[in-house]
Design a protein around this nucleic acid. Structure first.
Lengths: 210, 210
DNA sequence: TCTCTCCTTGACCATATGGTCAGGAAAAGA
DNA sequence: TCTTTTCCTGACCATATGGTCAAGGAGAGA
C-alpha cells in the first residue's frame, strides 16, 4: 500500500520525522481532541520546532487526517482474524482478542477514532460510506451464514458487530474511568487477561456459541 | 437537590436562560468538543449575545462543568431501574432499557460525557473517585449476590458493568457511524426497538439470565 | 569541489477567541 | 413615583494559535 522509497539518509530522516510527528500528534489529539490540540504542543512532544511540523504536514487538518487514517487501517486489519474461521466461537473469539489487543496497544488511536466519529466523522465520512460499509456487510453476511448453519443463535448480525466494537473499544476509550475504578492503576497483565476472558465468554455465550 | 426559588419574572428569566444556554452548550460541546467549541457559537445556538453567556456563566470551563454535571446526574439516575429488582433478568434488563433510552434521548449528553472521560476527566475526576466508585461497588455487590444465589452465571461483575455501559452508550456516542451504516438515516422506532431487544437478549443470555 | 535539492527554524503575521466593562433597560421593592 | 437591584449588550482588549517566510544548513549527485 505505502511504497517504501529506497533508503538514503534523506528518506530515512523524512520517514523518521514523519512517524515521530504522527506519534506525537496521535497522543496530543487523543488527550486534547482536535480543537484542543495545538501544533505547538505536538511539536514540543515530538521535540521539534513548530515550523518543522508544517514542513512535513501543511496544515493541522492534514496531520489529523493522517493520524485518523492510520488508525482506520489498524482497525480494519483486526478483521483478518475473523475471516479464516468457519466457526463463530473461533472467528468472533479471535476478533475480540484482536480488538482487545488494539485497545491495549493503541489506546490513543482508539480515542482519536472515537472522537472523530463522535464529531460526525468530518474527515473520514467517505471511508465510513465505502470501506466500512462494505466491511460491515461482508461480516454481517458471514455471521448470518453461521446462523443459517445453526452454529450460533439467531441474533441480529449488525447489533452483534456494534456490541463487539463497543465492548472492546471501551477498554481504550474509557480507559481512564476503568483505571480510576481500579484504584488509579492501569490494568495489569492479569487484569487484561481477565477482561479479555470476561468479554469473550459473555459475548460467546450471549450468541449461543460458547 | 437544586432548590427552586419562588417564581417571579426575574427568577423565571434566569432559569429559562440558564437552561437555554445549557442546552445550546451541550449540543455544541458534543459536536465540537471542549476545545473546538466557542462561546460565540454557543451564544448563536442559544440565540443570545455572547456577553450574555458570560453574565450567567463566568467562564467556558464553568459552563462546561455544569453541562457535564447534568449528564452525570442522568447517568446515575438510570441505575434506579436496576435497584428494585431481585432478579438479574429483570434488573439488568431494566437497566439496559433505561440506558438505551438515555442514548436515544440524550445523545449529546452522552457524547460530552464520553469526551470528558476520554480526555482524562479533567473536571469530574472527583466524581469518578467518589460517587461513581461507590455506585459501582454497590452494583457489583448486587450482581455478586445474584451470582451467589445461582440466578446467573459467575461472570466478573465489573466487566459486566463495563459491557453494559459500553454497549448502550455506543448507540449515542457512535450514533453517526450507525446512522451512516444505516444508509444515512437515523434509527427509526422499530430499529431502536430491535436494538434494545438485541442488546438485551445477547447480554442476558451471555450472563446466563435469559 | 561545486551545484542543486531538500531540510531546519527563528521571527513574524493575521485572525479568532475568551473574557471585560460601562452604560442602558427592565423588574422589584418602598 | 423613586430607588435599588438585576439583566442585557455592543464595543473593546489581551492573548493564543495556525500558518508563513526567508535565510541558512546539510545530503546527494556531478
Amino acid at each position: 500500500m505505502t511504497d517504501t522509497p529506497r533508503p538514503s539518509k534523506r528518506n530515512e530522516i523524512r520517514a523518521q520525522n514523519e512517524t515521530l510527528i504522527l506519534q506525537a500528534a496521535e497522543k496530543v489529539f487523543a488527550e486534547a481532541g482536535f480543537g484542543g490540540a495545538t501544533m505547538q504542543l505536538i511539536a514540543d512532544v515530538a521535540g521539534l520546532p513548530k515550523a518543522n511540523l508544517h514542513y512535513y504536514f501543511a496544515t493541522k487538518e492534514e496531520l489529523y487526517r493522517r493520524v485518523v487514517q492510520n488508525i482506520f487501517e489498524i482497525w480494519l486489519h483486526a478483521a483478518d482474524s475473523m475471516d479464516g474461521a468457519d466457526d463463530p466461537a473461533e472467528g468472533i473469539g479471535a476478533y475480540i482478542e484482536a480488538k482487545m489487543e488494539i485497545s491495549r496497544r493503541h489506546p490513543n488511536g482508539s480515542k482519536v477514532w472515537a472522537s472523530e466519529v463522535m464529531h460526525g466523522a468530518p474527515v473520514i465520512q467517505d471511508y465510513l460510506e465505502t470501506t466500512l460499509r462494505d466491511w460491515t456487510r461482508g461480516r454481517a453476511a458471514l455471521i448470518q451464514r453461521w446462523i443459517d448453519e445453526g452454529k450460533m443463535a439467531p441474533v441480529d448480525p449488525e447489533h452483534l458487530l456494534y456490541m463487539l466494537w463497543a465492548t472492546t473499544q471501551h477498554y481504550a476509550d474509557f480507559g481512564h474511568q476503568i483505571e480510576t475504578l481500579n484504584g488509579g492503576r492501569p490494568l495489569d497483565d492479569l487484569q487484561w487477561q481477565a477482561a479479555k476472558d470476561s468479554v469473550k465468554s459473555m459475548i460467546l455465550r450471549g450468541i449461543g456459541a460458547a
